[in-house]
């Protein structure tokens, strides 16, 4: 892909916000999220030849950012044998009214508490920039795994929202129930 200044600016304008939000959800710190986002666009400047067509640039940006995060945080070392699907029967039941008690700030706070293995696909899902097939490509996992993680992550969010006012269940306990 040829990347002249006008095209680069167009791409930055289109994607810097969702990319930053994704970065923030990964690192939880503004300065680190900024660096990840800037580094990703810097890489685009250097490696635009890797992107075969402009339609693929969005996925390339998210994939590159995610890989940079994984490399820098040794994500796989921290979570060496994540098998979220094994936890299917341990997830809390879904109740009908949890969603009614949400506001954006609470939602964001709850999302932060979800373990990374679920938070990453969930954030990509809620950013609504990619199909679930593309999310699987970005994360480098099978489509079925993405679907499961979104489903389990959502169930954890619901449980968080259910328990938050009463503080009846520590979320650490919920996290321990997932095989990490």
């Amino acid at each position: 892909m040829t990347l002249d200044d006008a095209t680069f600016e167009q791409i930055v304008t289109a994607y810097y916000e969702p990319l930053y939000r994704f970065a923030f959800s990964l690192v939880q710190r503004e300065s680190d999220a900024r660096d990840l986002t800037q580094d990703t666009f810097a890489q685009l400047g250097r490696k635009s030849h890797q992107v075969q067509e402009q339609a693929k640039v969005k996925s390339w940006l998210f994939t590159t950012l995610y890989r940079a995060f994984v490399d820098s945080h040794r994500w796989k070392t921290r979570y060496p044998h994540v098998e979220a699907d094994d936890a299917v029967n341990e997830m809390p039941a879904v109740t009908a009214d949890a969603g009614d008690r949400l506001d954006a700030e609470t939602a964001l706070q709850a999302l932060k508490e979800v373990p990374e293995v679920f938070r990453v696909p969930l954030t990509l899902f809620y950013l609504d920039q990619h199909s679930y097939l593309e999310i699987a490509e970005i994360l480098g996992v099978p489509v079925g795994t993405v679907m499961s993680r979104i489903s389990r992550g959502r169930a954890m969010l619901r449980q968080l929202m259910e328990d938050r006012p009463r503080n009846l269940i520590s979320f650490d306990k919920l996290k321990r129930s997932v095989v990490l």
Binding site: R34, T37, Q38, D103, A107, L108, Y126, L127, L157
Partner: peptide
């Protein structure tokens, strides 16, 4: 439920000078 979480994610404020910095 999803709609409210999607709105939550989109409230993550993006630094105003980020685009210019890039």
């Amino acid at each position: 439920f999803d709609q409210q979480f999607a709105e939550g994610v989109k409230t993550i404020s993006v630094p105003t000078d980020l685009r210019d910095s890039i």
